[in-house]
Design a protein around this nucleic acid. Sequence first.
DNA 1: ATTGCTCCTTAACTGCGGTTAAGTTTCGGG
DNA 2: CCCGAAACTTAACCGCAGTTAAGGAGCAAT
Lengths: 239, 239
Amino acid sequence: MPESTSPATFNDISPAMRDYLAEIYRIGMGQLWVSTTLIAEQLAVSGPATVRMVRRLQERGLVEHLPYKGVQLTPAGMTAALLAIRRHRLAERFLVDVLNFGWHEVHAEADALQKGISATIEDRMDALMNFPTTCPHGDPIPSKSGAMPQIDDRPLTVVPQGAGGIISRVKTRETAKLEYLANTGLVPGARYTLKARAPFNGPLRICVNGGAEHIIGNELAAAIWVQVDTGKSETARHD
Amino acid sequence: MPESTSPATFNDISPAMRDYLAEIYRIGMGQLWVSTTLIAEQLAVSGPATVRMVRRLQERGLVEHLPYKGVQLTPAGMTAALLAIRRHRLAERFLVDVLNFGWHEVHAEADALQKGISATIEDRMDALMNFPTTCPHGDPIPSKSGAMPQIDDRPLTVVPQGAGGIISRVKTRETAKLEYLANTGLVPGARYTLKARAPFNGPLRICVNGGAEHIIGNELAAAIWVQVDTGKSETARHD
DNA sequence: ATTGCTCCTTAACTGCGGTTAAGTTTCGGG
DNA sequence: CCCGAAACTTAACCGCAGTTAAGGAGCAAT
């Protein structure tokens, strides 16, 4: 029996499997070895459930599992994960753009809606929204062939004082934070200028869309990812 | 332990249960005793699967089951069934009105989409479409409280020659028929006049929206249900 | 009344996805 | 170097929803 890129790879992936694959991608960004315990935590599921699912995914050639070390996506698994993420982000976009949900209420609902989206429906939604490229929080939507656009952005916490640019995404799922950010206009696409930063990871003073100024604490700043629009890419390496 | 209208009735009904309940309603119109074998056939499922599910539904007080006789919905089961049907028909309407599906492709897709519709999403869809009262095929959408509007209609096959009125619904799921009907304008809401009917269940000559005339065979006519708009309700009883 | 066929139910098993309880591995100190 | 805690896996369950194979009910016709 052949093993490389087995033909049983593309379809017959259960919704649960999609969830696991997407989460593995999300945690490890497709590169790192991810611990089963971490996956379990993120999916709010027991450790053993995760271990068994990982075994199943391995049997289908979607992940590599080194016991006690972690899990990593294979190329096939990567594609499947990205398609799952695509569905999820399209669902989020749909909920916000078409069904008028607020971006803070969207995550759980999208998880539910996902299960009902067939390939055909996915395409129609995509077309109806005119082929959006990001989810409401700014994360890119992978292409239909499973390619994830890369974004060159970093958290506000490492942006040098005086710099400006565009807010690219917001990396939090906390309802309260999302609502606060929406109210202050700190949403993807908005232009910012970092007026001042207090020392020792103190709060930031930031100007949004040339308008009001806001004071942002460090915790919130870490969730706001931005592009910096100077000529030279002053990469304050993060991590 | 109490038995009447147990409190575990309203939520925690699995998608599969909804499917069974809706099908039991559809077959028996909430009145008749429905055979398990028939349910099985309609849901494309084995007999034993149905029998076991019926037992579970009975334990939850949603149906009454007399072995070797059949199944009937209890009041609680009726409500649950109608809410399931509501979701299904809203989904159909949504696919046609919002996602631009043709009414002939809608049934299977709606079955899929249904699984992803939470109560909240259902409400938003409902509002977005301005609270539609029928599915694309003309069947009424039950209210949020589970009340099914009654329609006083009958198949074209029993309408007296010369009568006219409005097409109320189309009772078929066959893709080919639905496409044909759409092309000839024989859709719910259209006005018809029955010009002539050949004897011995022969074909009908029918005029649509004051325009083109069409010849309709008996099989097709049986799928077209209409309201007859004379003063006196000439009820050709269809038993 | 018995036969026999069809319809319906029960029995026994499968696979998925979840659980808790009970081992193993691994790894950082003492 | 070894020991113990934390991380991870295995074992043994459960419930849901499906299957096929086998058994009992009901009824029509001899």
